[in-house]
Write a protein that binds this DNA or RNA. Structure first.
Length: 111
DNA sequence: AGGGTGACTGCTA
DNA sequence: GTAGCAGCCACCC
């Protein structure tokens, strides 16, 4: 059982950054990496795996730069992806049948 | 301490 | 459009 305080500084930066993503918007691992000015997109993905609470940190609002769905709960495919899609759809972010983000204007750039 | 792994990205074919 | 390969930084044996 991990807590937020138990995580590394890098992890905490990533998780706090997800809270900056407004509802109905998403961002990419690369943009998030640039925003916190450390790590690499891969490291950001690894950080989200350690997410202590998906209800507190919106890790489902982070997708790869190719606008596909990416992964969730430590998996790159499977039913957990369906949960991620469902959460996003519930916030107004829709994906097409190929799992690609439909409205790319919903990408949050940390302006 | 050393090496492998990954919720990724970019370039090339 | 997809497939393969190299680079990437932090994490986990």
């Amino acid at each position: 059982m991990s807590t937020f305080n138990d995580l590394t500084t890098f992890q905490q930066k990533v998780l706090k950054a997800t809270q900056e993503i407004p509802k109905g918007k998403v961002t990419t691992y690369k943009l998030l990496c640039e925003h916190i000015k450390s790590g690499s997109p891969l490291s950001v993905g690894s950080a989200l795996k350690k997410n202590p609470s998906v209800e507190t940190f919106f890790c489902h609002r982070v997708i790869p730069s190719n606008f596909k769905i990416g992964g969730y709960f430590g998996k790159t495919e499977g039913s957990n992806i369906d949960l991620k899609l469902d959460r996003l759809k519930n916030e107004g972010v829709s994906f097409n049948s190929k799992g690609i983000l439909e409205d790319k204007t919903k990408i949050h750039n940390f302006d």
